[in-house]
Amino acid sequence: MAEIVAVVASTHHPFYYKASTAPPEERPPFADEWVSKIMSFRETLTTADPDVLVMVGSDHFHQLWLDNMPQFLVGRAPMYDANWYNEEREFGLPRMRFDGDLALSDHLLRNGLDQGFDLAFSNELRIDHSITCPIITLRPDADLPIVPVYTNIFAPPLPQPKRFVELGRAIRRMVESWESDLKVAIIGTGHLSLELGGPRQFGPHGPDPEFDARAIEWISKGDIGGALSEVTLDSLWTPGNATHGFMDFMLMMGVAGDDNPADYVDNLDLFHTMEAYFTWYPNGAPA
């Protein structure tokens, strides 16, 4: 059976690429600390030495649109082009391309459908920065095949938080039952408190530092019960109008397991948002 060698959850900040690659005179003052933290975070995946990556993210109205909006979607394609014109325009993100893994896509789709998740699929999926940002931070050579899993955290009506947790648990079971000798890392990105296009955007910190502190504690302890007892679709509007992206962190907590503390925890207080980085090793830390 396949082995899950790492479970990784993080924020996805589209400005990292530009901040880390700009010439020294154009780099923002926080860039060096940010790069340093990303280098440490990257090492947690590098040492796990995965063969294939399951990538959980959310399309930002790029390919998925309101005339036909899936709640959960699995990519099933031999290749994935990545990043869009408006991401090049606003964030300076590069065009990228990844190999897919059709066998793992098929396994997730068949078993997901059989386990009660009516997953949509796509045979031609251009992925966006929710997935390319963690590739840039964690695996910049982009040399591993991926299976994208998209969630709707963006266009109400949304699935309930508990559904994200349940899908995460199911993805864990499904990967562990995959008849393969490959080593799999499951990587997902979301948000802590975040405001986009609202009055609290682009402040000196994230819009709700208290929520961010509680969220980091829930994730780092694997406290799924605590998170589910406080987080609802209604409550997530309060920390910031884009905070429903926290449900992708909840999905990743489902992957990592109940009350399973993260093996690696770090965060960085930036303007506009709190960055946070977590890694679990289901079978123990790599030697």
């Binding site: 109205f61 408006n86 606003e90 963006f154 986009l196 296009g197 609202g198 955007q201 109008n241 884009a242």
Partner: peptide, 8 residues
């Protein structure tokens, strides 16, 4: 209107 679309 969706705030992300407007902002972008």
């Amino acid at each position: 209107a969706h705030p992300f679309l407007t902002l972008t």
